[in-house]
Deep mutational scan, measured.
Amino acid sequence: MVQRGSKVRILRPESYWFQDVGTVASVDQSGIKYPVIVRFEKVNYSGINTNNFAEDELVEVEA
């Protein structure tokens, strides 16, 4: 279970941040499909630095 402030590695192959490390900004408990919002240092092609992920697409590298 990841929690706010954890450092996580992204396992979603189609993601711009695949294999990159980001910080968990928040975790939604309402039961949505992609409840974990992760914030990154670098921006993607659209200038965005956050994205939603499912918990099984993340691996915690640092608490």
Rank of each mutant, 00 (worst) to 15 (best):
Y16F: 15
V59G: 07
Q29A: 11
G22K: 00
V38E: 01
V2H: 07
I37F: 11
V43M: 13
V8S: 01
Q19F: 08
R4I: 15
L11D: 04
F18P: 03
W17A: 00
V38I: 03
E60Q: 11
M1S: 14
K42F: 07
N52A: 15
N51A: 15
Y34W: 10
R39S: 10
K7C: 12
D28W: 01
S46P: 06
S46G: 10
Y16H: 07
I32V: 14
V8W: 00
S46E: 15
K33W: 05
E55V: 14
R9H: 02
F53A: 00
E62N: 12
F53Y: 06
S46Q: 15
Q19M: 15
V8K: 04
S30W: 05
D28H: 06
V2D: 05
S46V: 12
T50D: 05
D56H: 14
V43R: 13
F40Q: 02
E60K: 11
N49G: 06
K7Q: 08
E57V: 01
V27R: 04
W17V: 00
W17E: 03
I10C: 09
I32C: 12
D28K: 05
K42W: 07
N51Q: 15
M1F: 11
P35W: 10
E57R: 01
D20V: 09
L11N: 05
Q29E: 11
V21E: 04
S26C: 15
N44M: 05
S26M: 12
S6A: 13
F18L: 01
G47N: 06
L58Q: 00
E57H: 01
Y16R: 03
K33R: 13
S15I: 04
S6R: 07
N52D: 07
S46T: 09
E14Q: 09
N49T: 07
V24H: 01
V27D: 01
A63K: 12
A54F: 04
I10N: 02
V36D: 01
S30T: 13
D56G: 07
V38N: 00
Q29T: 14
I37W: 15
I37K: 15
Q29M: 13
A25F: 09
A54V: 03
V2G: 03
Q3R: 14
D56Y: 14
D20C: 13
G47L: 00
V38P: 02
P13M: 09
F40L: 01
R4W: 03
T50F: 14
T50R: 04
G31H: 10
N44E: 07
V27A: 03
I10Y: 02
E41K: 06
V24I: 05
R9D: 02
S15L: 04
Q3M: 09
G47C: 10
E55W: 15
V59Q: 14
D56A: 09
R9M: 07
S15V: 02
D56C: 12
I32T: 13
Q19L: 14
Y34F: 11
A63W: 11
R4L: 13
A63N: 12
E14H: 09
Y45N: 15
E57T: 03
E55M: 15
T23R: 03
N44W: 09
V43S: 14
E57N: 02
Q29Y: 13
G5W: 00
G22Y: 06
R39K: 12
G5M: 00
E57K: 02
D20Q: 13
V36M: 03
R4E: 13
Q19W: 10
Y45S: 15
A25S: 10
S26T: 08
R39N: 10
V8P: 01
V27M: 06
L11F: 02
S15R: 00
E14C: 12
V24T: 02
G47H: 03
V38G: 00
T50M: 11
F40R: 02
A54K: 08
Y45R: 14
F18M: 01
Y34N: 07
M1Y: 10
R12K: 08
N52R: 12
L11V: 07
E57G: 03
P35H: 08
G22C: 06
P35N: 12
V61N: 03
R12F: 07
D20K: 07
K42Y: 08
I10S: 01
E41M: 05
Y16N: 03
N51R: 03
G5L: 00
T50Q: 13
G47I: 01
A54T: 06
I48P: 05
K7T: 09
V43P: 15
K42E: 10
W17K: 00
Q19T: 06
E62F: 12
Q19R: 08
S26R: 11
V43G: 10
G31R: 08
D20M: 13
A54I: 03
V36W: 05
K33F: 07
K7A: 06
E57A: 02
T50G: 03
S46A: 15
G31C: 14
P35V: 11
I10E: 02
Y34Q: 08
G31I: 09
N52Q: 10
R9K: 10
S30R: 09
P13L: 06
Q29S: 12
Y16C: 10
A25K: 09
F18C: 07
Y45M: 15
M1H: 14
S6Y: 00
L58W: 02
Y16M: 03
I10V: 13
I32E: 10
R4Q: 13
I37G: 04
V8G: 02
F53K: 03
V43H: 13
Y16W: 07
Y34K: 08
W17H: 01
V24W: 00
D20I: 10
S30H: 07
V61A: 06
N52P: 08
V21H: 04
